[in-house]
Design a protein around this nucleic acid. Structure first.
Lengths: 141, 141
DNA sequence: GTGATTGCAAACTGTTTGCATTTTG
DNA sequence: CAAAATGCAAACAGTTTGCAATCAC
């Protein structure tokens, strides 16, 4: 499989497994999500390798490190500009590819050279809203 | 000072010191920033007390926990809805109180009940841009 | 006086690093 | 075959917790 040749990274089996796990993945996995998934095929896999690979991929701008979860870093293989919709109950993260007009008034730029922006939308996902209803329903009896 | 009575928290001297440090603070300090600042007056201060107080204040919705710094939580005593401008070099964070029209198309809501949003603007602050220039200038000699 | 807070130490999570061994290109 | 990756363990930063002594109300 020559698919990942253009990354200019040494392609070890472990890295391939990580790359395949990330390919098209919209779960925004954490390092341990990745570790757990790839461990199934490589029981000797170590966190050092996961973090090492993630750092290498970040260096090639082929993944993004997300600062969205208060407890741990999450990683996103979707590198086109997009925003996120986050469930405040279960921390599920969904990609939003809609573009928004976000021009900061000159006065508000505080002399910064603006290079980008990112919107987090917050809400409660249908599953969590459903669960809340069920629990509430249960208490009514 | 009765200023903090309405918080309905037991007001120990340590808590008062933390509250005074946070009052009007726009630095978005981390727990250790707070610890270091309050330690000057209370050398016996412990992280347990800092975190305990922060948790209590968060419970009273009188501070916000920011998920903006990849390395640690930061805290914001500004509880009115606002956005942030972040220097990607030095991680300085500046409040942006401009309001933006951010209506997510129904199709993009994925069944979520949307409760809020937050924009992070990224850029390079004047100080960091200046430093980069200096360094570059230096190399030209 | 009672229930909450303090402060210390120990535990815990996520992440990073050093290093001998192995592997890729 | 050289330069880089692996995997283990140890180290590390930020955060949380258990608990006896203390303090606010």
């Amino acid at each position: 499989m020559k698919k990942y040749k253009n990354l200019c990274l040494k392609l070890t089996p472990q890295r391939l497994a990580i790359l395949e796990y990330l390919e098209g993945n919209t779960d925004h996995p954490s390092a341990s999500d990745i570790y757990n998934a790839v461990c199934k095929r490589f029981p000797t896999m170590s966190f050092a390798t996961v973090y090492n690979t993630l750092k290498a991929l970040k260096g090639k701008a082929s993944i993004q490190e997300l600062t969205i979860d208060p407890d741990k870093k999450r990683f996103d293989p979707n590198t086109v500009h997009h925003h996120h919709l986050i469930c405040t109950e279960c921390r599920k993260i969904i990609d939003i590819e809609t573009e928004f007009e976000l021009d900061l008034p000159e006065l508000q730029k505080h002399g910064f050279e603006i290079t980008g922006n990112h919107i987090d939308f917050y809400g409660v996902c249908p599953e969590c809203a459903g669960l809340a209803l069920q629990e509430y329903g249960g208490q009514l009896h």
